[in-house]
Design a protein around this nucleic acid. Structure first.
Length: 473
RNA sequence: GGCGGCAUAGCCAAGUGGCUAAGGCGACGGAUUGCAAAUCCGUUAUUCCCCGGUUCAAGUCCGGGUGCCGCCUCCA
């Protein structure tokens, strides 16, 4: 069964094929580093990470590039010339470069906590200005862009395919709905490639003047071209990127190269919190730190954010996070059970018992992931596997096969506790002491030890085949 | 105003026109246990937001409502 993805460009499910056999060139729209990423941002990056992991599971060599936007995003045009990073800089009275550097570090730390695999490269916009200027020059030379004073605009009318991604028509865009239309543009829909403003803090000298900075979309066109070439296999982002950002990227790149830009465009839906959109006013723009402060592990958040299908709105509440943690704990338990069963403990008599069932679960997991990353279906397959283990229907070698499969599945999900944790010797002794007490029927003492360990986060289970411990989730 | 998405049990969440509507969490009853925990058995959607329509057959397709979400110059 082949991998099928929903392509925002064609609005259909399409079989996935690559430009070059076995290789995937993927560009993920990354963060603007002017503040702390919240869990909604993380959903989009976890989607990209899951996609990358699923491609790797299938044997593809994935070259993943995620940009870091550390220049030139305007707050709004009413506040001409001030971008988010600069606004923050003025507020904190700090150097804007220092600010973006700090948030970039924190962003990487957040990704690492959530178990995201590092991209091949995280290009910074600030380090690719010459590449952007090269494209801008090219676009002017080819007649797709025009200069007005120190500003350069892309002329949307010259690129008839503008709107093919978002479905918007230039005539129907509500020009000026949110910002004042700039008089100097030929068409209100034209967008800036380069702007000049002496007041700007982060600026570069170019042939358009000494005080320039790049426009809003050109960085992704320039950086994807530099690091992945003129044509990509996959380009991802949040649903909000669809228009105008990705629409403009397509226009710039395709006008410049004369070739189709990305074969597949994939967009993650927004995360909702408390059934609605997150807002600073409601105070529910949570960061990973907020989640950790409530006593949850980052991998529990990871599970919570990947558990739904990426193209469906996903809701987040603290109760839902708690539910997810409980569901994940069962998968941890499955790993522990399979580890024991493969040595014959609680296993079915015949070693090959259940081998077919394991294969069936694996096939279901894979077919789920192949259906445009249907993670809920894939997780359901793992729960079916758990059912088999609980019913003791797996023999030792079937359990070994199941464990191996679960390990592989977790290469994709990235949140199950697969490895056995070693307990400190003193806790081992406590457990042994409790067993002694139980033999003596000194239940007062045995319960005391159990409660003491529970307070340390160790849960004990007395099974017919011995004591099993696990961490309290 | 234009473009797009979503609506399935107490809570999450699959469902690719056709066997009894996945799976998880939670809850309740019973078994098991020294007590727990874990586990097992059973119960928890006669029905998929509402109204029409197409079809032998619709959660699934079409039309119209209602509600929520996103975009329309940069917020994932």
């Amino acid at each position: 069964m082949a991998f099928t993805v929903y392509n925002s460009l064609t609005r259909t499910l399409e079989p996935f094929t690559t430009l070059e056999p076995g290789k995937v060139r993927m560009y993920n729209c990354g963060p603007t580093v002017y503040g702390r990423a919240h869990i909604g941002n993380m959903r989009a990056y976890l989607f990209a990470d899951t996609l990358r992991r699923w491609l790797e599971y299938q044997g593809y060599d994935v070259k993943q590039v995620m940009n870091i936007t550390d220049v030139g995003h305007l707050l709004d045009d009413a506040d001409e010339g001030e971008d988010k990073i600069e606004a923050q800089a003025k507020k904190e009275k700090r150097d804007p470069w220092e600010i973006s550097r700090g948030w970039t570090e924190l962003f990487f730390a957040d990704l690492a906590k959530l178990g995201c695999k590092p991209a091949f490269v995280y290009p910074k916009a600030s380090e690719h200005v010459p590449e952007m200027l090269e494209m801008i020059d090219g676009l002017i030379a080819k007649g797709f862009a025009y200069q007005v004073g120190g500003d350069v605009y892309f002329e949307v009318e010259k690129f008839p395919a503008y709107g093919k991604l978002s479905g918007n028509k230039v005539e129907e865009l509500d020009a000026g709905a949110r910002i004042a239309v700039r008089e100097e543009k030929k068409n209100p829909a034209d967008f800036a490639l380069w702007k000049s403003d002496p007041q700007h803090l982060m600026k570069w000298t170019s042939r358009f003047g000494p005080d320039g900075f790049p426009g809003w979309h050109i960085e992704c066109s320039a950086m994807s071209r530099k690091h992945l070439g003129e044509q990509l296999d996959i380009h991802t982002g949040g649903e909000d990127n669809l228009f105008p950002h990705h629409e403009c990227e397509i226009a710039q790149t395709e006008a410049f190269t004369g070739r189709a830009f990305s074969r597949y465009w994939m967009h993650a839906k927004f995360l909702q919190v408390d059934g609605g959109k997150m807002s600073k006013r409601l105070g529910n723009c949570y960061s990973i730190d907020d989640v950790v402060a409530k006593g949850f592990a980052p991998r529990q958040l990871r599970y919570c954010l990947i558990r739904g299908h990426y193209r469906t709105p996903l809701n987040f509440t603290w109760d839902i996070l708690k539910e997810s943690a409980a569901a994940l704990a069962n998968l941890d338990d499955l790993a522990a059970r399979l580890r024991r069963m493969q040595t014959g403990v609680d296993a079915s008599a015949s070693s090959d018992d259940g081998l077919d069932d394991v294969a069936r679960c694996k096939a279901k997991f894979e077919s789920g992931m192949n259906e445009d990353l249907n993670v809920p279906k894939a997780i359901a397959a793992l729960n079916e596997l758990r059912g088999l283990a609980l019913e003791k229907r797996l023999g030792a070698s079937a359990a070994a096969a199941a464990f191996q499969f679960l390990r592989k599945a977790n290469e994709v999900l990235g949140c199950i506790q697969m490895e056995e944790e070693l307990l400190p010797a003193d806790i081992e002794q406590e457990i042994a002491a409790r067993q002694d007490a139980r033999k003596r029927k000194d239940f007062k003492e045995s319960d005391r030890i159990r409660d003491t360990l529970l307070a340390q986060g160790i849960v004990l289970e007395d099974t017919p085949s011995g004591v099993v411990w696990k961490r309290k989730s």
